[in-house]
Computed example of a mutant assay.
Amino acid sequence: MTTAPSLRERKKQRTRQALVDAALTLFGEHGFGRVTLDEVCDEVEVSKRTFFRYFRGKEDVAMAPLEDMWRAFLEELENAPADGRPLLGLMESTLLAALDRVADEAWAGRAVLSYRLLQATPSMDAHGLHFCESTMRSVLAVLHRRLDLPDDARPRLAGDMMVAAWRHALEAWAATAADPPSASDLAARFRDAMAALPGSLTLTAAPRPADGAAH
């Protein structure tokens, strides 16, 4: 049985979320580089000392919605059933469980804003790449601790393919998201991308037919 968070924990979560919302709004209106941490803190009426209890900097707060999903993925991975299914299938169902866990009614809108900022901001892109690599190392550590996996490239390549499918789904979703955006649409796009992986491995490099040639 899950224990309900204490009043103190709920207040901390509200403060953290208020910082994320204020940052995403200000960055979206004025540009990531033109907004200071002081302005974000002033918007929520907290000190920079309070800000740094939750985030390491502007990139961290701007990417919080997406990074929260991956942290939930790592937590879900600790309890995912080791039932002998293909590793890609296990990771797919685990990511979908993590997405369902974090995707409250406001998450999708925040995630779209976060991803669009990521696409437009070089420092956020670099931060995202670093976070992705760090997260993948953590994923592999959990997998090797819990599962009987070979000590070769295959687990890492499976993880990289799963991340590639997620990025493909996220990019298409953020570009065409409805208003309000739907996390269930993102989940469906991710399932479709994962389903396309086997076919991508068997694509042939055949030359294009000459113009006018019969098909």
Rank of each mutant, 00 (worst) to 15 (best):
V44S: 07
V35A: 11
A72V: 05
L19K: 07
F73T: 07
R10G: 10
M63L: 15
F51G: 08
K58V: 00
A18P: 00
K48P: 05
D42F: 02
A18G: 14
E29A: 14
E39Q: 14
D21S: 13
R56V: 01
C41Y: 03
G28M: 07
R56T: 14
F51L: 09
F27W: 05
L24Y: 09
D42L: 08
F52V: 03
K58A: 15
K58N: 06
A62P: 02
K58Q: 12
G57V: 04
W70E: 13
F51K: 03
E59D: 14
R34Y: 08
A22H: 08
D21A: 15
L24I: 10
V44Q: 03
V20K: 02
T25Q: 12
R16G: 03
K48V: 04
L74H: 09
A72Q: 14
V46R: 09
E59P: 06
E67A: 14
P65A: 08
G57W: 00
R34C: 08
R56W: 00
E29F: 01
S47Y: 07
T50G: 09
V44W: 02
C41E: 04
V35M: 07
Q13H: 10
D42R: 10
W70L: 13
Y54K: 00
A23L: 06
E45N: 07
R14K: 06
